[in-house]
């Protein structure tokens, strides 16, 4: 006996020819398709192996086998590719840090990174250096007030401090790196990225047009974090114009900047005071106060 399947609703009719009208969706006979050769083969196979493909036991065994095969396949592929993927993620992180230092499109980012980044330190919110290495391996969820990674870099002879940060955008996570000049206040460069912001709107935070608004802005004034992203810029020195149409994402960037900088504030403020070196102290102090 041949099987006819309705192409519209999937109703299966068994008989010598297709029904004139589908009993389920009233489709005409022309909508029926003969499930011919395949079914015949299936019948033959069934007969040979003695399986009844419509029995409960067969369905359960079949499903179990499929699931086990797929599980092993995925687990195998995942563990096989894991080292490669982690290497990619580390390399990507290095590229992002370099991007915040305005170093982009390097053919060998890993080499450039080890050249530029002198120290992967960990500091706390009191401004004390907790460790001078291992900052790179601090996972995002392990970052807290006593465990703040800080990258001390050397770009063309000048010391720059790169601060990593994470926050929430409209649809998902956003993150970034802010490079600060050795005065501990002026932004040298930034890098922002996002998981799933709206293309053309919130996603523009990852674009140059937005990121080039940051360099030169001041982070801290009078002991408070003033750096921010707003719609109406009141203070050109420390505020950045938001992207229109991407209010929630820009608010997310704003919160991320403020929250993160709060933890690094003590360290940055300490940088603003001249390092205890006898000779140039007075002159530098005056200069720094001016900038504040």
């Amino acid at each position: 006996m041949a099987k006819y399947v309705c192409k519209v609703c999937g109703y299966t009719h068994e008989g010598t020819e297709a029904p004139s009208v589908c009993p389920l969706c009233k489709a005409p006979a022309s909508e029926f398709e003969l499930v011919g050769g395949g079914e015949a083969q299936g019948d033959a196979k069934k007969a040979k192996k003695g399986f009844n493909t419509s029995s409960d036991a067969y369905a359960i065994i079949y499903a179990s086998i499929v699931v086990v095969i797929v599980a092993f396949l995925l687990a195998g592929v995942s563990s096989l590719l894991r080292p490669q993927q982690e290497e990619n993620i580390r390399l990507d992180k290095k590229k992002q840090i370099l991007a915040s230092l305005n170093i982009k499109n390097q053919p060998d980012a890993a080499a450039t990174y080890s050249e530029v980044v002198k120290q992967e330190a960990i500091i706390n919110n009191a401004g004390e250096v907790v460790a001078t290495e291992g900052g790179f391996d601090v996972a995002n969820d392990a970052i807290n007030d006593s465990n703040l990674p800080l990258y001390i870099c050397d770009v063309k002879g000048e010391t720059k401090y790169v601060i990593p940060m994470t926050g929430n955008g409209l649809w998902g996570g956003i993150w970034g790196y802010v490079a600060v000049n050795s005065d501990g206040n002026t932004i040298y460069g930034v890098y922002f990225s996002h998981a799933s912001e709206t293309p053309g709107l919130g996603a523009e935070i990852a674009g140059d047009k937005f990121q080039t608004r940051f360099p030169g802005k001041h982070i801290i004034a009078d002991g408070a974090v003033t750096l921010g992203v707003t719609k109406k810029v009141a203070n050109e020195e420390c505020e950045v114009n938001a992207i229109s149409g991407a209010t929630i994402t820009c608010n997310g960037v704003n919160d991320m900047l403020k929250n993160t900088m709060e933890g690094y504030k003590a360290y940055l403020v300490a940088l603003q005071k001249p390092i205890v070196e006898p000779a140039p102290a007075p002159a530098e102090e005056a200069q720094v106060t001016e900038e504040e």
Partner: peptide, 30 residues
């Protein structure tokens, strides 16, 4: 297709698609 039990065919199709998508995504990441 000839071995798939017709009552759970959608589930089997879903498993195949999900496995493929995961594979592609893992390979892309690597």
């Amino acid at each position: 297709r000839n071995t798939i039990p017709s009552r759970i065919r959608i589930i089997i199709q879903l498993v195949v698609v999900a496995a493929l998508v995961t594979l592609v995504s893992e390979v892309l990441k690597a």
